[in-house]
Amino acid sequence: MIETNVIQVENLTKKFGDFIAVNAITFEVKRGEIFGFLGANGAGKTTAMKMLIGISSPTSGNAKVADFDVFTNSEDIKKNIGYMSQKFALYDDLTVKENITFFGGIYGLSRKKIEEKRQLLVEELGLQNIVNELVGSLPLGWKQKIAFSVALLHEPKIVFLDEPTGGVDPITRRQFWEMIYKASNNGTTVFVTTHYMDEAEYCDRVSIMVEGKIEALDTPKKLKEKFKVNSMNDVFLKLARNIE
């Protein structure tokens, strides 16, 4: 198999006035990879992610996502990626079914395709009893699992997940990661941020941002070897603020 890069980033920079939120970051993400995008609060992760999903224009640098340029083809990027975050995933005032139909429509799927996808999703997640419930009435863990599936409705090449498991119970958190593994196994690239350091270990490769720059990028195993520590938590603590 030829390894192809689905995200290619070169010296990507974003400034807000004098403040450099993202400072010339360079990296690539391969097809089917689970890529962990870590960093302290305020390190620039969200700003970087916004540029990659086509909703914020970079100040300088280059980036291609799913072969589309972030400067000139940001609309095409939006059609070819999935996105979910902890803060926004689904509409609370719509039922599960309505959310699926709504997002299917937004992504331009045909009615027939949406119906097919909905049946598949209901079956896979065991949603038979809650498909007509308002999303707002569901436990957070359910919401997040459904949101992830909805983000994959249009079979995007890449899915961006911004802290998808924050506050979710430990069992559901793991079921969520099994869904990520499955998507990656099917060739979908997963770009994910998290504050749970055990989840960093689940990633194929991890980058750690500190004050706008990528200070480390490698497999969890190599990062731990490099910093001579036993866990990603310790790697993070060493890097993010040079504690201890």
Binding site: G39, A40, N41, G167, H195, F236, L237, A240, R241, I243
Partner: peptide, 13 residues
């Protein structure tokens, strides 16, 4: 009540 939710590992420490 959940003073560290959504806070990075360094700040949590």
């Amino acid at each position: 009540d959940e003073p560290t939710t959504g806070v990075d590992p360094v700040s949590r420490k």
